[in-house]
């Protein structure tokens, strides 16, 4: 059994990180600077990795840091540089009809909140769940979920070839 004060600490950690993530996500979609948006996205992704740790998913958290913060963000920054977006403020990052997003997002959020409150209410996460080991995850991937793994390998191959073909100068 985990001590009550540890649970309190977990809760504080969760809300602190969640607040940072939500703020970062808002900044990603509202900032007028592409590079700033990319940096705010790093904050969100790092926060997500922290939440994974709270959810007892170490391996996924490490992968998140390696793949997302390590590789994907570098790709984004390269993309930004190569397309010579203005490093400074750019007032033309939004659509003419940007406000169309507000009702859609609000409607979606309202729906989700209603559904989640109705479905889960005050249900507690188990406090004594064992940490999922990397071995268990690999047993899953190379056991019952081998077929999606193959499909995914194929997707990655196709994406590699596709990216090369698209970005090649000829």
């Amino acid at each position: 059994m985990i001590a009550a004060d540890l649970l309190v600490a977990q809760n504080i950690g969760f809300y602190l990180i969640a607040a940072i993530m939500v703020f970062g996500a808002f900044s990603v979609v509202t900032t007028r600077n592409v590079v700033h948006a990319a940096l705010w996205l790093v904050v969100v992704l790092a926060g997500a990795a922290a939440q994974y740790i709270l959810l007892a998913a170490e391996f996924v958290a490490v992968t998140q840091v390696l793949v997302y913060i390590g590789a994907v963000m570098v790709l984004f920054l390269f993309g930004t540089m190569l397309t010579r977006a203005r490093i400074g403020t750019d007032s033309e990052l939004n659509n003419k009809n940007w406000f169309m997003g507000i009702p859609v997002a609000v409607l979606l959020l309202a729906t989700l909140i209603i559904a989640l409150n109705d479905g889960f209410g005050d249900e507690q996460l188990p406090t004594d769940a064992p940490v999922v080991t990397t071995q268990q995850v690999s047993d899953q991937i190379f056991g019952p979920y081998l077929l999606p793994f193959w499909a995914l390998s194929f997707v990655l191959l196709a994406a590699t070839i596709g990216a090369i073909v698209l970005a090649r100068r000829d």
Partner: peptide, 24 residues
């Protein structure tokens, strides 16, 4: 593309809302 996105997510949200209302 953005208009397509708006239509897509809007339709999904409305569809989800209908399901939620039916089920609650």
């Amino acid at each position: 593309v953005n208009q397509y996105g708006a239509l897509l997510f809007g339709a999904a949200a409305i569809g989800a809302l209908v399901l939620v209302i039916i089920n609650t």
